[in-house]
Design a protein around this nucleic acid. Structure first.
Length: 627
DNA sequence: GCCGTTTTCGGCCCGACTGTTTTCAGTCG
């Protein structure tokens, strides 16, 4: 059982417990464990062997025992028993908008609904509106939700969402009521796929902005519309959420709306420890509490503060104070959030205010996933992330010698105009016929032609390479004699993607151990939304990459983004060198670099972790040293 | 179910919108 499989089981357990109306914190514990395991850069089986399961944050005695059981037996009795009470197909209906755990439980109990098919049937027969708490509108919304699910059950790839969001932002920027506008949510964090598009606006006239927003041309349907928050569906059936706040709250709102949810929770928990309340409107502190309250509070764990508030009416009696330490650095006020009259805002115009208030440095958006960034920040140990300007060359671009649409010269010129010091033309090898792979008889002619271009080009070094296929048995697609003519050999798998994990791993390892390969391109072969990654043993791949000095690629092609963030981070931690290439097939594709950089930043990579940040001499030297 | 810079008990983020209700539960992010 690997990390993802185990994470999935805990995720499902959380959903079942939710339907069973279990303790919400227990549910949160399972959900948290699921997320942590999914984001782990180490193989959980290895942690098991080393007896380190309990060292995983969010995993205590109970969940650790369940992980052990899963690894030892491949099964979990607790989970099997839960499934008997709540059929798994019932979890499916929670994917329908408007249906959460409570509604699912109700539908299951009263109408024996346990699938989307039966749900639709019940709607059409108007059985749902007769249930308590349900009405005609709910029934209609459920039907709409079912239809919408068919259209939007897939997350949008990052590039598609970015394109749409930028167009919407451009329209919103034109409105005179709009003071500030920003993309937020997972899109701002540059996740590889996006659920819906979040946009934040600062404005003094939220109502006017909302009205204009919902009447923009791309809007097909309004899903909800309130004073400050509205959701619409685009013509392509994509959801766009708009939130409007005052300018003074823009920073806090941007932080909150950017997330991730888990990151936000941790930040707010830090706030609580400091006696602060952090929400999307700002950072707040209790107002005008006389010093003696703190002293009283120390003696009495829970103390009714109402008598000390300005408004001494009964409505304050719900405010209780609990002091956690005598220096006032940690206290919590229960009920405080319900009484806004006593608050004092101490920040929130800038996103930085939020981090300042809890003693953190500014955390780059790509890191905000609760993958250790808060702990690292508290220790002042955040990495200085790689930036797009750090890249000095693109080592994986195609020309019209194979399936690219531009000439060598045009590709080189385009790379130069982007300020690169070097570029490597890597066309496909002979076996990849669909991509017009370069035949052996053309091989040397191509090398000579690229060398010619290099001689004539000023201001950029044009290197000769090839993207060489790894065949079904792990052999390279050209003989050694030809490969030695090249500056760079990139090896990749394009065929036999469905071979078993062991075999695929061995093929890639063979290529790395040949002594002829510099880079492994798109190591997992996935195409977002089209093709799953093929299965390989990352532990083995990283180990061999480290031993042989072969570089692993982060491919910037927006459908690939391969390695992904988690694997790239794991590779770096194992001491593997990485490279960010675009796999361009025309000059425009060179702009894809931003997606590769996004992956690298989400993987916590620094400039020195990525070899194409090196100046040309150092880059070439590093290749030679390896050989 | 997890966790602890006084805690092994008693906490656990915070708010908007909708629909069905006459004050709030459910859902969502």
């Amino acid at each position: 059982m690997d990390n993802l499989e185990i994470a999935k089981i805990f995720y499902r357990i959380a959903n079942i417990l939710e339907i069973k109306n279990e303790n919400t914190f227990k549910i949160r514990a399972y959900r948290k464990a699921s997320e942590v395991i999914e984001n782990l850069t180490q193989n959980i089986n290895k942690l098991y062997e080393e007896n380190k399961i309990k060292s995983i944050p969010g995993v205590g005695k109970g969940i650790a025992e369940k992980i052990n059981e899963l690894i030892e037996t491949g099964k979990l009795k607790y989970y099997e028993d839960l499934k008997k009470e709540v059929p798994e197909s019932l979890l499916e209906i929670m994917n329908v908008a408007e249906i959460g755990p409570k509604t699912a439980a109700l539908l299951h109990e009263k109408l024996k609904i346990d699938s989307i098919g039966k749900l639709k049937d019940a709607v059409l027969k108007h059985k749902i509106s007769k249930l308590p708490g349900m009405g005609e509108k709910t029934e209609k919304n459920i039907l709409k939700g079912i239809e919408l699910l068919k259209k939007t059950n897939q997350r949008i790839p990052l590039y598609e969402a970015m394109d749409l969001a930028e167009k919407i932002v451009a329209q919103l920027e034109k409105l005179k009521e709009v003071k500030k506008v920003s993309i937020a949510g997972s899109l701002r964090r540059m996740r590889e796929t996006i659920g819906d598009i979040d946009i934040l606006i600062a404005s003094g006239s939220p109502k006017k902005v909302t009205d204009k927003f919902i009447s923009l041309q791309f809007v097909k349907e309004v899903l909800s519309k309130g004073a400050t928050k509205s959701s619409v569906l685009t013509n392509e059936a994509r959801q766009v959420d708009l939130r409007i706040v005052a300018e003074e709250s823009f920073g806090a709102a941007l932080h909150y709306f950017t997330g991730s949810k888990e990151h936000n929770i941790k930040i707010r928990e830090l706030g609580i420890k400091k006696g602060l309340k952090i929400n999307e409107y700002g950072i707040f502190t209790p107002l005008d509490l006389p010093a003696k309250i703190w002293q009283v509070g120390i003696k009495n764990k829970n103390y009714d503060l109402s008598q000390y508030f300005k408004n001494k009416d009964k409505k304050c009696s719900h405010i209780k104070c609990k002091l956690r330490s005598d220096d006032m650095s940690e206290l919590s006020l229960t009920g405080f959030k319900k009484d806004k009259r006593q608050e004092k805002m101490i920040g929130g115009e800038q996103e930085k205010d939020v981090f300042d208030s809890v003693g953190l440095p500014f955390i780059p958006v790509e890191l905000r996933e609760d993958r250790g960034e808060i702990e690292a920040g508290l220790e002042n140990n955040l990495p200085k992330l790689i930036a797009i300007e750090d890249i000095r060359g693109d080592l994986h671009v195609h020309s019209n010698w194979s399936d690219g649409s531009n000439t060598v010269r045009e590709m080189a010129q385009a790379a130069k105009s982007r300020g690169y010091e070097y570029v490597c033309i890597c066309d496909h090898s002979k076996s990849l016929v669909v991509a017009r792979g370069v035949k052996e008889e053309d091989f040397l002619r191509r090398v000579r032609q690229i060398r010619e271009v290099d001689k004539k080009m000023k201001g950029i070094k044009v290197l000769v390479g090839s993207e060489v296929d790894i065949d079904f048995e792990g052999r390279l697609d050209y003989p050694e004699k030809l490969l030695k003519e090249l500056d760079i050999v990139i090896a990749s798998v394009h065929m036999g993607l469905k071979q078993p994990r062991k075999k695929l791993t061995k093929r890639i390892i063979n290529a790395m151990e040949s002594g002829l390969v510099d880079i492994i391109a798109h190591p997992t072969g996935r195409l977002l939304g089209e093709r799953e990654a093929y299965e390989i043993d990352f532990e083995e791949i990283f180990k061999t990459a480290k031993e042989t000095g072969v570089i692993l690629e982060i491919n910037s092609h927006p459908k690939r983004m391969d390695l992904n963030d988690i694997n790239a981070r794991a590779a770096k931690e194992k001491g593997v060198k990485l490279i960010i290439n675009t796999d361009s097939h025309n000059t425009m594709h060179l702009d894809w670099l931003k997606f590769g950089i996004a992956v690298a930043r989400r993987a916590w990579l620094k400039e020195e972790d990525v070899v194409n940040t090196y100046p040309l001499e150092k880059f070439l030297k590093s290749l030679k040293e390896r050989k």
